[in-house]
Design a protein around this nucleic acid. Sequence first.
DNA 1: GGATAAGCGAGACGGTACGTCCCGTCTTCCT
DNA 2: AGGAAGACGGGACGTACCGTCTCGCTTATCC
Lengths: 195, 195, 195, 195
Amino acid sequence: MHNPSKQDKSVGRPRSEAAKTAIIQATISLLDTVPFSNLTIEAIAKQSGVSKATIYRWWPNKEALLFAAFLHVTTVDVNFEPALSIADNFRQVIGDLVVILNQPLGRALITVLIDQPERVTAFQTTFFEVKRRAAKQLLTAGQAQHVIKPDIDLDKALDMLFGAVYLRVFLYTEVVDTDYIDAVIAAFMQGIRQD
Amino acid sequence: MHNPSKQDKSVGRPRSEAAKTAIIQATISLLDTVPFSNLTIEAIAKQSGVSKATIYRWWPNKEALLFAAFLHVTTVDVNFEPALSIADNFRQVIGDLVVILNQPLGRALITVLIDQPERVTAFQTTFFEVKRRAAKQLLTAGQAQHVIKPDIDLDKALDMLFGAVYLRVFLYTEVVDTDYIDAVIAAFMQGIRQD
Amino acid sequence: MHNPSKQDKSVGRPRSEAAKTAIIQATISLLDTVPFSNLTIEAIAKQSGVSKATIYRWWPNKEALLFAAFLHVTTVDVNFEPALSIADNFRQVIGDLVVILNQPLGRALITVLIDQPERVTAFQTTFFEVKRRAAKQLLTAGQAQHVIKPDIDLDKALDMLFGAVYLRVFLYTEVVDTDYIDAVIAAFMQGIRQD
Amino acid sequence: MHNPSKQDKSVGRPRSEAAKTAIIQATISLLDTVPFSNLTIEAIAKQSGVSKATIYRWWPNKEALLFAAFLHVTTVDVNFEPALSIADNFRQVIGDLVVILNQPLGRALITVLIDQPERVTAFQTTFFEVKRRAAKQLLTAGQAQHVIKPDIDLDKALDMLFGAVYLRVFLYTEVVDTDYIDAVIAAFMQGIRQD
DNA sequence: GGATAAGCGAGACGGTACGTCCCGTCTTCCT
DNA sequence: AGGAAGACGGGACGTACCGTCTCGCTTATCC
């Protein structure tokens, strides 16, 4: 049984949660004005009023800190609403995704993942697959209800749906708003809908 | 009389094309083992046997150098083959794209574009739009020939097709080979084909 | 209550005296083989096993470092010995001076002072005047004892005595040994001695 | 026999005297605002409208150029005036010397000579000794005429006289005007005059 | 008078050092 | 033991000059 009042009985001064959150907040706020490649640990320390050593005590490098910051502000959970249509469900999940990707934090995360592919695995199970599995279940259910064509390659379909969003946000750098989301989902549904 | 059209007059010692290509080759070869974020101008100088000053004489920073290196080795032209089917044409263009994206140079380029979105415009017209416009013409022609559904939102469709590829290559970090390309194109065609 | 008189409070890691002395020693030893104009901070860093940043943390440029090194090894104090004759006292102080000037450190110092006259003031009170004032007291005392002519312009006399030494050491680049010192002091005394 | 009119019959375009003097003028004018240690060949080239290569064709380094510039503007000749007194003659020669030393060019020259003693020989015979020999003749003549003490060590005496001036100009950085010159010569004469 | 040769301005080149910034680690004192 | 302050060794930055070189052009002598 775990006793949270007395804490994990360790000698010495306990770590400061305040410091941890200050660091993460500083990271996030600095990314508003500075691209991740120009973000420095020293700037974060100064901004958060924390010593560099404290940052390094919690995270080994700025990528790890970025990941922590990302997970700190990101809701990974995907709750599909059975009452809603498939399209409406997608509107919800894609909308959430776009919000994340449009934040500097999201951009920075993706940057690191592409630059250092070995880090992708850290997010595969906790982030990408979560959304993907849920989406796939949605489509599978749609097939069972005969509203989605039965011979659709669901993996490729989902690559296309999500891929379109990433592409627009990052490489075409156009505003991705509800209009775009609606349109891409409509196009997507048109291709997979069973008449 | 001064003729500004070509010629350039060229006073002083002309720049060394050998140095330029050595720099670009060094950049490319270093990216094989080093992620772009760890690539240094100093390493490029040493590897290419060129002085740092010469690199900075021609490119203001490593991003600009990366772009030059990318364009140096990348064929942007897209030549669609009327004799081939739409799917086969896409196989060709997507295959070319995947080769580019799978190279470290491609990864690095995309990394920079996401980290510093203001640089995207430099590639919009010379790279992304070239491929996109050609692809769109292909689909438009397909509609004229009644092999593509007339009410397809072609822009969204292309976002999905290209997006799927980017997503797989960069974020799912899975091998994207001809099998995958065939499958995604098949799924894509299934959604837009006119029966 | 804050006591600004001494103490300094000293927060953070204290500076390394070992680094400081290593830097100064490296400076001195390099000047044995390299003229000051060819001395580089980078060579000092390498020789002393210290990072460049540490050098710049404590001195803004190599001139300032040179001055610190000079003062580090130079005894400025002048202790005249009442038991000795005026000439013997001068022999002592001039001998000390010649030792200093003959060292590369001394040469370098003088070089800088001539090249950048605005720096002279830094040494006026702590070095030149110390020796000069003591010497002047000696002569004044000699006048009181009627062994020095009363109408001597002591300042000009001292300019001549010290000037002769500087001139020989630096511009005539001849060995200035005890023979020379004895001779110049003899000539000097001959001019001012009261018969 | 050497014919200076037709010159050393060389093939090719002759050297440009205009360039040479422009370089020397630029050197002199730059030294008004820049200490010699900060003087650069590039700045001289720009200022004089000459290419760097031309400067290096004439002088191997900036020290050599400095020497040329110094000799270009300096009259080395010392003409003692038999009609004048010894003191007046000294007033003349010391006055000339002070003018030279007070110019940036003079300072720069001395700086180099101290920093790189091996260069002193280049000026020993052409500059220092010229003045010194003439001064010595003056004193020797004075001894013959019994106005200078016969047992004076003339070399040391001259070291003191000239040394005083160098010391004042360079290390005490005080204005050395005719008042000072008069005073130091008076003091000097007082020491060597035969009563 | 055409060939040959050197001088010249412009400016690129390989190289070295600059002074700065940030890294990740450390040492001190304070909590 | 955690933490703020800040020094430390290290390494890359982007810049400034070094002294040399390669251009196209000019200015002389030589044959």
